[in-house]
Amino acid sequence: MAWLQGSFLCGALLGWVCLSAPGLAVEVKVPTEPLSVPVGKTAELTCSYSTSVGDNFALEWSFVQPGRPVSSSQPILYFTNGQLYPTGSKAERASLLQNPPTGGVATLKLTDVHPSDTGTYLCHVNNPPDFYTNGLGLINLTVLVPPNSPSCSQSGQTSVGASAALRCSSSEGAPRPVYNWIRLGSSPTPPPGSMVQDEVSGRLILTNLSLASSGTYRCVATNQMGSASCELTLSVTEPSKGRVAGAVIGVLLGVLFLSVAVFCLIRFQKDRRKKPKETYGGSDLREDATAPGISEQTSVRADSNNGLLERPPSASTVTTTKSKLPMLV
């Protein structure tokens, strides 16, 4: 009897828990590894879920461009109320592997993939009242594209002893291609130190050019989908005699101008040192100064006979005369 009562109590407790517990959690499973598909092929983005499918079950696939947040996703298709609604720019190429997707499989099939299809795809399952997870799975898709024919160009001087840069770039290619420069023909290869290339940027630096550096150079752009190339002919020339003569004349004129400037500066300094300084001390008397105590009227007298002016006694004479006068105490 006691055993029956215990069993009844356990069953009642389990029933109460089941009745009071909310709906089950929605669980969405997607591959953890990114998906890579060659351009023009069909991509299958696997998505599975587990939930108790009811009348409120809804499925949504959306797309996010690389580098943008999930909140800016663009819809691809909806499934709700038993109907499938493709939408957006991918609507004509998007479908579900199982339709209706009520058996736990919500795989998206995208045909004839384009380079613009590269990005993140969101598989979102919504099934009220199962709200205990976000019911969201993310898949990263990369559309593989071979590099197109790169563009080759050069910059810098192509004369002996100068430096030049060769550049190579492809506008298409996924993953991003690497670049390799090679020299064609049987001409001798320039010294290793004079060629430095960057496989990422596609730049080739040629330093200390010589006539042996002339020739045809090929740039090859490569990724896992294929390769493409372009060629460029480099012609190294010797500096012209007229250019060399002009450079020499320019140097000589510069030296001559500098020499004349230095000579004029030295001459100016010497002349400045030889020129006397017209300065007077406080105790010096000028030759034409008037002696103290003699008025201007008495210092100059007119000679009525010959019409000449009589020069007043000099400062030295006045000083001597004053020194002979007796001093009164």
Results as ranks from 00 to 15, higher is better:
Arg167Thr: 09
Ser95Gly: 10
Gly15Asp: 01
Pro326His: 07
Arg311Ala: 13
Pro128Asp: 06
Asn126Met: 11
Gln224Leu: 14
Ser201Leu: 13
Tyr85Pro: 00
Phe63Leu: 02
Leu108Arg: 01
Asp271Trp: 15
Val125Leu: 04
Ser214Glu: 05
Leu309Gln: 12
Thr51Arg: 01
Leu184Ile: 06
Leu35Gln: 05
Ser240Met: 07
Thr237Leu: 09
Glu238Ile: 06
Met195Cys: 07
Ser316Phe: 09
Asn148Ala: 01
Leu308Asp: 07
Ala247Arg: 07
Lys275Gln: 15
Val64Arg: 00
Phe257Cys: 14
Gln98Lys: 09
Arg176Gln: 12
Pro188Trp: 03
Val17Leu: 14
Lys277Met: 12
Gly242Cys: 08
Trp181Arg: 00
Asp55Thr: 11
Ser153Cys: 02
Gly215His: 09
Ser259Cys: 14
His124Glu: 12
Ile266Pro: 04
Asn305Cys: 05
Gly6Asn: 12
Ser194Met: 10
Tyr85Met: 07
Leu14Met: 08
Ala25Arg: 07
Thr87Arg: 04
Gly173Trp: 00
Leu96Gly: 03
Thr317Pro: 03
Pro239His: 12
Glu278Pro: 10
Leu252Asn: 06
Ser314Tyr: 02
Asn148Trp: 02
Val248Gly: 07
Thr107Glu: 01
Gln154Pro: 00
Leu24Met: 04
Glu296Leu: 15
His114Pro: 00
Leu138Gly: 02
Val105His: 10
Leu252Phe: 04
Gln98Ile: 11
Lys109Glu: 06
Val200Gly: 10
Leu232Asp: 00
Asn306His: 05
Pro292Ala: 13
Leu184Gly: 02
Gly293Met: 04
Cys230Phe: 03
Ala21Lys: 01
Leu122Tyr: 03
Phe263Ser: 14
Asn127Asp: 06
Glu60Ser: 11
Leu110Gly: 01
Leu97Gly: 01
Leu24His: 10
Val125Trp: 01
Ala289Tyr: 12
Cys123Asn: 01
Leu265Phe: 15
Gln157Ser: 15
Glu231Phe: 05
Leu258Ser: 10
Ser259Ile: 06
Pro75Ala: 05
Lys29Ile: 10
Ala2Glu: 13
Trp16Val: 10
Glu278Lys: 05
Phe63Arg: 02
Lys274Asn: 08
Val260Asn: 14
Tyr85Thr: 11
Glu287Gly: 12
Ser235Asn: 14
Thr80Ile: 13
Gly202Ile: 00
Ala247Ser: 05
Phe8Ile: 13
Val260Gln: 12
Asn140Met: 08
Ser229His: 07
Ile76Asp: 02
Gly103Val: 09
Gly135Glu: 05
Ser227Thr: 07
Ala58Ile: 06
Leu13Phe: 08
Gln98Arg: 11
Thr51Trp: 01
Leu265Gln: 11
Leu258Asp: 08
Thr317Cys: 11
Asn305Glu: 07
Met327Thr: 13
Val318Ile: 15
Ala245Ile: 15
Ala247Gly: 06
Ser295Lys: 07
Cys47Leu: 05
Cys264Lys: 12
Ile294Thr: 09
Phe268Met: 12
Ala302Thr: 14
Ala162Glu: 09
Leu97Phe: 08
